[in-house]
């Protein structure tokens, strides 16, 4: 009986901590069957497995440090889609008014970009990143305990831009 209560409690707690904003999940699930989108889900269980990965390079150390407090990551992305801005607007409309604060909006000529955060007791509990371009759409949800400084530091240690980094990563993977 005691065990049952503990298990039920543990389940309840885990459900509560895993909770991701409904707005994102709704959008994510809507395009679950759409081949144009790439979807990635990484759960806290998977994150806990990362502890076995050795952080060899300084960038790995930074990444693992940032992950250590995360509970989950979901990515919905498409790089050759018609009218990415349409999805951008749709996604933003879904989030608006669900307790997210806009952190930053950037328009760099090509893409529209928005960062939104949800705070819980002075700490950021979820970070949403929304990117919309002519053919591009990216929607990332990060939840758990998020340290923005750590997030920013991560790529600074490399001292190169994001897209460049992605290219480098692909190349380095091929070399291996």
């Amino acid at each position: 009986m005691k065990k049952l209560v503990i298990t039920a409690l543990a389940l309840f707690v885990s459900v509560a901590t895993f909770a991701q904003s409904e707005a994102f999940t709704k959008f994510y699930n809507k395009y679950a069957d759409n081949d144009q989108f790439t979807q990635v889900t990484v759960t806290s269980k998977m994150f806990s497995l990362f502890t076995e990965i050795e952080g060899e390079t300084p960038e790995d150390k930074e990444v693992l440090e940032a992950i250590s407090k995360l509970k989950g990551l979901k990515v919905l992305a498409a790089d050759s889609i018609k009218d990415g801005r349409k999805y951008y607007k749709e996604a933003f409309a879904g989030i608006n008014g669900t307790g997210f604060e806009e952190l930053m909006t950037v328009r760099d000529g090509k893409d529209d970009m928005k960062f939104m955060i949800k705070e819980n007791g002075g700490k950021i509990s979820e970070l949403l990143m929304l990117v919309g371009g002519d053919t591009k759409f990216v929607f990332i949800s990060l939840y758990g305990e998020i340290d923005l400084k750590q997030m920013s530091k991560m790529s600074k240690s490399l001292n190169i831009g994001g897209m460049q980094y992605l290219q480098n990563l692909d190349e380095s993977k091929n070399k291996k």
Partner: peptide, 26 residues
């Protein structure tokens, strides 16, 4: 989970976080 292999999941997470991080810095 999308990936069952932690190594692959890690690569993808790293990619996503790095992208996010670089965009924040931008």
């Amino acid at each position: 989970d999308t990936y069952q292999d932690p190594q692959k999941a890690y690569e993808e997470t790293k990619k996503a976080l790095m992208y996010l991080s670089s965009k924040i810095n931008e």
